[in-house]
Simulated assay, not measured.
Amino acid sequence: MGFTLEVDNYRALRKVRWSPSGVCAITGPNGAGKTTLLSTIEFLRHFLERGIQGAVEFSGGTASIKNQQAAFKERIQLMLGQGPCSWTVFAELKPPLLQISEQVWNGDETVAGQNPDSNWVFVQEHELTVTGDSVFSHAMSLLPAEQRERLKGLHGLASTFRLYQNLQFWSLRTTGSPATADLYLHSDGRNAFSLLRNWKAGRKEHEERWLFVRDGLRECFPELFEDLEFLAAGQTVTVQFFFRGLRQPIDAYSAPHGLLVALLHLCAIASAPDGGAVAIDEPENGLHPYAIRTLMELARARAAAKDVTILLATHSPVVLNTFNTEPERVYIMEPEHEVLPVALTEHSDPEWLAHFSLGDLYSDQTFGAQRRPPP
C-alpha cells in the first residue's frame, strides 16, 4: 500500500512531497537530507510514544529542528497518510518551547484535533486537556471502534516504523543481546540474537520471520553459512555459527562482519509488520556485491508478500543497478529542486535511462551529484 509523507521546514527538509511503496532507493550527495527524510517518521513515532519532549530530544533539540531557510513565521508541518487517513502535526518554534497542534483525518472528516493556542483537544464528542502528549494516541483509545479500525493501519505504520543506522556490531560480538521478550529489532540492532531466539521459539507467525532470516543468510552466503544456534548465560543471549567445511562452530566475536550486517538487515526487514514500513541507511556497507544483490531480491519478495515498504538510503552503484528495470522507485535528493525527493523517472527520460545501468549514471554524477563549488 505504501504511504504519503509531506514535510515543510523540518531540519534539512524545506519541502517534501513523497509517496513511496515497495522497495525504494533514496540517493544523492552527502548532506542533502537523505537520512533526515527517513528519520522524519521516527520523529512522529517518538511523539506517539514519548510525547513532544521525547520527540524533540530525538531530533537534536529545538535549536536544530526548524529549517534554516524558513521564514520566522513559517511553521514546521509533518503529514503522514495511508489510504484515506492522515495525521498532521504542526509545530511553531517559540524558544525555548515548541508549540504543537495536530489534526487526525478519516477521509474528509476531522476526527481529532487540537487548538494551537491552548491545550484543549477534541476527539469527536470528547473534550480533554493534553499537555505534551499526542492527540493521535488519545484518539486511538477514545474514538468509536469503527473509527479506530479505520485508523489502525496509519497508527500502526507510525508506531512500528524503524530507521536502522549506527548498528551496534561491536556490542553484539562482545556481549551479545540482553534477554528480552522483544518481537521486533531495535533501531541499534543490539537485541538481534534475543529477537531471533524469540522468533524461533514463538508462534508460527513469528517462526516464519526466523526462517526468513536463516534461509536468507544461506542465500546471501551459499558457500559459507549453514546454520546458527543460541547460547544463553544469565540475562544474555549470544549465538554460534555453523559454516560449511568446518567441524566446530564459530562464535559471534569471530564471525565475518558481512554476515552480521546481513543478519541485522534481514532482521530489520522481517520486523516490519504487514502493511508497515522500515528504513535502512546504507545497507551496502560491509557486503559483497553478490550478497547485496541477493539481499535486494529477498527484500523485494518480502515487500510483495507482506505489503511492506522498504526504504534504502544508498550511495551504492550495486544497489542502484538492481533498480534498472524499475527506475521509478529510485528517488533523488538534490538540493536545487524545490520539492524533494525527485523520482528518477521525473529527473530523466525513462526511455533514455533504459540504455544505461543506473549505478554507472550515479557514479558519473548524471544524477545525485556531489558538486564542487565554483572557483
Rank of each mutant, 00 (worst) to 15 (best):
Trp87Phe: 15
Asn324Asp: 15
Ala91Tyr: 08
Ser86Trp: 12
Lys200Leu: 13
Asn166Ile: 01
Ser159Trp: 03
Gly54Ser: 07
Ser64Gly: 15
Val239Tyr: 01
Leu195Gly: 02
Leu13Ala: 09
Thr309Pro: 12
Pro96Lys: 03
Phe356Tyr: 15
Pro289Ile: 00
Met296Ala: 02
Leu157Glu: 01
Ser271Thr: 01
Arg371Met: 13
Val330Phe: 07
Ile269Phe: 09
Leu38Glu: 10
Thr314Arg: 00
Ala71Gln: 13
Glu226Tyr: 08
Leu287Ala: 01
Gln103Ser: 14
Phe356Glu: 09
Leu44Arg: 01
Gln365Arg: 14
Arg293Pro: 06
Glu328His: 14
Gly51Glu: 11
Glu127Gly: 00
Asp360Arg: 14
Gly2Thr: 03
Phe221Trp: 07
Val23Arg: 02
Thr88Ile: 13
Gly51Arg: 07
Gly234Asp: 11
Thr129Lys: 10
Glu49Arg: 10
Ile100Gly: 05
Pro373Ile: 08
Ile292Ser: 03
Val104Glu: 08
Ser316Val: 02
Val121Pro: 05
Leu320Ala: 03
Trp105Ser: 04
Cys24Gln: 13
Ala255Val: 04
Leu172Gly: 08
Pro317Asp: 02
Ser187Cys: 01
Glu226Val: 04
Ser141Leu: 06
Val135Gln: 04
Leu172Ala: 03
Asp364Ser: 10
Gln165Trp: 02
Ala12Lys: 12
Leu224Asp: 06
Tyr290Arg: 08
Val339Trp: 08
Trp120Pro: 00
Leu361Thr: 08
Thr366Asp: 09
Trp105Tyr: 14
Ala233Ile: 06
Gly81Trp: 10
Glu149Ile: 01
Glu149Phe: 07
Asn321Cys: 06
Gln77Phe: 00
Val330His: 07
Glu226Ile: 01
Pro289Gly: 02
Ala343His: 05
Gly189Thr: 08
Ala158Leu: 13
Ser134Gln: 05
Arg75Tyr: 06
Ala277Pro: 06
Thr62Ala: 14
Gln103Leu: 11
Phe136Trp: 02
Asn115Gly: 05
Gly275Ile: 00
Pro375Arg: 12
Ser271Met: 00
Lys94Ser: 13
Gly156Pro: 09
Ala291Phe: 07
Val121Met: 02
Ser316Ala: 01
Ala70Asp: 04
Gly234Trp: 12
Glu326Val: 15
Asp108Lys: 11
Thr236Tyr: 08
Gln235Leu: 12
Val123Pro: 13
Gly54Trp: 14
His265Gly: 01
Gln365Ala: 14
Ala277Glu: 06
Cys24Asp: 07
Thr88Glu: 11
Asp349Ala: 04
Thr88Pro: 03
